[in-house]
Nucleic acid binder design. Structure first.
Lengths: 202, 202
DNA sequence: AACAATACCAAGCAAGCGCTTGGTTTACAA
DNA sequence: TTGTAAACCAAGCGCTTGCTTGGTATTGTT
């Protein structure tokens, strides 16, 4: 765990230690949920992925849905912490915007990548009474984006409505999980620059 | 069926008549697959949605997956035909680009909207041996986009790599299915203009 | 060494799933 | 009016699913 932001979250018990049994299970779950989909993934597969019986899962989580919920919850928490950190280090409006773009691209394509896909694509699989919990976290997440975009808009760097622009960019970045290949010609750095170009042409 | 493009497809038997029992079933399936997800949707629900027994579905389709496949297949065919039509009527490069953006936005938010969401979000639910069939159609679809974007790029209207730009735009438009509300302040026309602004600033 | 708490196993249950089957109704042409 | 094909029903089969249960290792603390 080289990431200090992550370390602090674990120490403060905001998230599960990735090295613990439960943490490993969540990572395996994110992988299976992304590649096979939540519904198609069986508790037997989940158990096998970490080398335990299917029934033993229910010692750590009270239901299959609870696994999904935990994966989603912790992913948002991690990435919000990283965004906060990046924002505090960026000197001006444009670099703050780029910082958020980089954060979101990283969230989709590095350690939390599979969990982020699950967050986006498996939303419907959450029962109605669990959705508000995630929705609330997402709103906090989006608030960070909006204030940052508005800052650029007030400086005249952006021609579009901040709400609309954010949603267009969210789609553009999120969709990259389906086509971007880390072993290809395009670096994450360049992908971020291309994405920034959607908002600001210089 | 007021759309002449649609009418011709039906007459030439490229797609199922939407007024037939089979056509209605496909529309109901698209609705359920979008709102509940393919896996969560049961054949009993599908039957109930059109007022028949679950077993009777298998008179029209040989499996549940076959329903999904048909929905996806016909949706691409319909929207490719509409794109062809719109492209042939647009006078210059920039208006051709706008035409495609409008087509894709319409495809997501009008009659084929739910089916388009299914096409995007339920891809994984197709078995590996059926995926190439849809992939092939998607490639044709994307070819239309690429030639159109390249045309604008050659004229210097676009600063980005056409491949990358297309994918960013595809994400931006596709994602709008999750947030756009037809009864809100933003018209589809304005959404298209905002999307065009991602590619071309004037 | 003794104990408690945690982590896990082996077995299986109840429910729901996609799909099949054999037979009946409906639609329409000859 | 009769014949034929398409459309549908009623019933249920075989299987998989998420989850429970009662018991056994494993781990860490004193």
């Amino acid at each position: 765990m080289t990431d200090p932001v992550l370390k602090q979250l674990v120490d403060n018990q905001y998230i599960t230690d990735p090295r613990s049994a439960k943490g490993k299970l969540m990572r395996a779950a994110a992988h299976l949920f992304k590649t096979r989909g939540y519904e198609r993934t069986t508790v037997r597969e989940l158990g096998a992925a970490v080398g335990i019986q299917s029934g033993s899962l229910f010692h750590h989580f009270k239901s299959k849905e609870d696994i999904l919920l935990s994966v989603m919850e912790e992913t948002i928490i991690i990435n919000m912490a990283r965004m906060d950190d990046a924002l505090s280090k960026a000197p001006d409006a444009k670099s703050r915007l780029l910082a958020l773009i980089q954060c979101e691209i990283n969230s989709v394509h590095t350690d939390t990548g599979e969990a982020m896909s699950v967050l986006v694509y498996e939303w419907r699989s959450l029962s109605k009474d669990k959705q508000p919990l995630i929705l609330n976290l997402r709103n906090q997440y989006e608030a960070l984006w909006l204030t940052t975009i508005k800052e650029s808009a007030d400086l005249g760097l952006i021609q579009q409505d901040p709400f609309i622009l954010r949603r267009l960019i969210a789609g553009a970045i999120g969709w990259s999980s389906t086509w971007y290949r880390p072993d290809g010609d395009l670096s994450l750095e360049d992908l971020a620059k291309n994405t920034l170009l959607l908002a600001i042409k210089e």
